[in-house]
Design a protein around this nucleic acid. Sequence first.
DNA 1: CTTGCATGCTGTAGCTGCTACAGGATCAAG
DNA 2: CTTGATCCTGTAGCAGCTACAGCATGCAAG
Lengths: 129, 129
Amino acid sequence: MRTIGEAAKHSGVTVETIRYYEREGIVPEADRHANGRRLYDEAAIARLRFIRRCRDLGFTISDISNLLDLSGASSRSCADVKEIGERHLTQVRERMVDLESLEAALIELLRACTENQADCPALKQLFAD
Amino acid sequence: MRTIGEAAKHSGVTVETIRYYEREGIVPEADRHANGRRLYDEAAIARLRFIRRCRDLGFTISDISNLLDLSGASSRSCADVKEIGERHLTQVRERMVDLESLEAALIELLRACTENQADCPALKQLFAD
DNA sequence: CTTGCATGCTGTAGCTGCTACAGGATCAAG
DNA sequence: CTTGATCCTGTAGCAGCTACAGCATGCAAG
């Protein structure tokens, strides 16, 4: 059984964030030592690491809660995981498309804005009726 | 001089958001009618429209404040605008790169996860040491 | 045995950029 | 005069943490 600091090191989740996850019910309440300090076994640390990886993959906390539930359930879990993952993948791709049009718009905005002119064409465009 | 509702319609910024911008000092305090209601002239509405367009381009409120300041200043403003714009463009491109590796990681994660198996390979991978 | 630093605890406020009320006043039309 | 739209202020909520304050405890060095 490890302290919260060690759990943080082994999971890649900060101490503050671990406590936040517990407060929000994203992970179950940790066991406590007689002195009141939290204690983490390997399963609890694996759960934190799992959350960390999911966050790195951009999943929402809500999705992660569902994934954690599925990891407990046995039946159909692979299909459900796949569904959550593909929905997220779709959202990632939508964001990429958004960023591409953003990029194009920014390039277009700054195109005319090359000289050290007082009357900036970019500002003019943004202020136009 | 228009009411806040009309300013909202003409600028594309909602009534609530206009009040929020004022509260936060992002736009100057609006003039008031004798009855206490806010009044907006064309310049104020153009400012709101400007903010709206900048937000659509993904600029932060902090950048937008700077851009608004520059639109008042005369000297060097085009070079400064260009700098803010290009810094933002760089960030947009960084986010695109991030999303691309996210996409790749998600595809890889879900690759093995095709069958309706009970022991989901994706979950297994996320839980691994 | 003491000193002092690291770590732990709870509780609360802040970040970004809004959005959504509650609870009331006022206006404009029928 | 009534009704419904619009306005006002003030406050709380969203996501997902992060950063304290203010205190208690543990552990190693001297």
